[in-house]
């Protein structure tokens, strides 16, 4: 554990240090303007004179304002501690029913993600079973599945929202469908590979037992595909989350992590954007870790932890 901990913490420390370092030039112009307004002497004087100067040069000439770059209300690049404070503030210090609570928005996005993930996984498995057992489906479905993923989700998401809205469907379902649209694909690809993973010898063996196609599926193909399924699910759940967030953008930014991102960018609330981004990343990491946990338990129960 200790041998893993040290490198992991080192990498985190390097990233945080670089981030702080980047905050100084990124926020320097604003910091100098505000300092000058408050009566401090900065070089060179006058926002106009500084406008075209490089931020790094300015930072080197005004070390006194470095600290100011880390405490602004609307920085170009918020400092790590500002994002952390905002995260803490909007999760722990707000009631979860509050519109300003990230837990509230996170749950809105998570529910769409989970529903979409369930739909996508089910659809992916069913399609994969069809593709493996029917040559016609292999030839006809796979190209469409691939084509579906070449369409930018940002382009198709508003159309799905609008079409479903005109049918009277809104809220959770349209987001879940966009989510499913992204997550079915890795499941199809992984499950097709998994269901086809048994070697010719394994199929020959079942043939010598005169096993039926259904028996080959339940006794050989399905259990052999389990490791592939979990690999796909980990990709799929992350894609589902992205889908749900993208699905929140065209609805006018009312609820959800996507809404927080969008309203943050409307009002220049960079700290809010970054904290929503981090909430998303943390949520994705937790979801993937959950699936990895289920994977470990399942494979262990199946005896495949050799």
């Amino acid at each position: 554990m200790r041998r893993v901990l040290l490198p992991v913490l080192s990498v985190v420390a390097v990233i945080v240090a670089l981030w702080y370092l980047a905050c100084v030039p990124m926020n320097m112009h604003t910091a100098l303007t505000e300092a000058e307004r408050a009566g401090a002497v900065v070089s060179p004087t006058g926002a106009k004179a500084r406008r075209d100067l490089s931020a790094i040069g300015l930072a080197l000439r005004n070390p006194a304002q470095w600290a100011d770059t880390l405490t602004q209300a609307k920085p170009r690049l918020p400092a790590p501690h500002q994002v952390l404070v905002e995260l803490w503030d909007t999760t722990v210090n707000k009631k979860i029913t509050s519109k300003r609570s990230l837990v509230f928005h996170g749950w809105v996005t998570l529910s769409a993600t989970l529903l979409g993930f369930a739909i996508g996984t089910l659809a992916g498995i069913v399609l994969a079973i069809g593709i493996v057992h029917s040559r016609a489906m292999d030839m006809s479905v796979m190209p469409w599945a691939i084509a579906s993923q070449t369409i930018p989700i940002l382009a198709i998401a508003p159309m799905i929202i609008v079409v479903l809205n005109s049918l009277g469907v809104q809220g959770l379902i349209p987001k879940a469908i966009i989510s499913a649209y992204l997550s079915f694909f890795p499941v199809v690809v992984g499950m097709v590979k998994g269901l086809r993973s048994p070697a010719g010898m394994q199929l020959d063996l079942l043939s010598t037992y005169h096993a039926s196609r259904a028996q080959v599926f339940w006794l050989l193909r399905l259990p052999a595909s389990v490791p592939y399924l979990f690999a796909s699910l980990k990709v799929g759940i992350a894609a589902s989350l992205i889908g749900a967030i993208v699905g929140e953008l065209p609805t006018g930014a009312v609820r959800g992590l996507g809404a927080r991102l969008l309203s943050g960018s409307y009002y220049g609330q960079t700290i809010q954007i970054w904290s929503a981004l981090f909430a998303t990343a943390i949520l994705a990491a937790v979801l993937v870790a959950l699936i990895a946990g289920v994977e470990r338990l399942t494979l262990k129960r199946m005896g495949m932890n050799g």
């Binding site: 010898m201 394994q202 020959d204 050989l220 389990v226 050799g306």
Partner: peptide, 13 residues
Amino acid sequence: YGYVFQAAGLYPW
């Protein structure tokens, strides 16, 4: 008949 292949081919699960 029973058939034995070159590899044991036991199911790992």
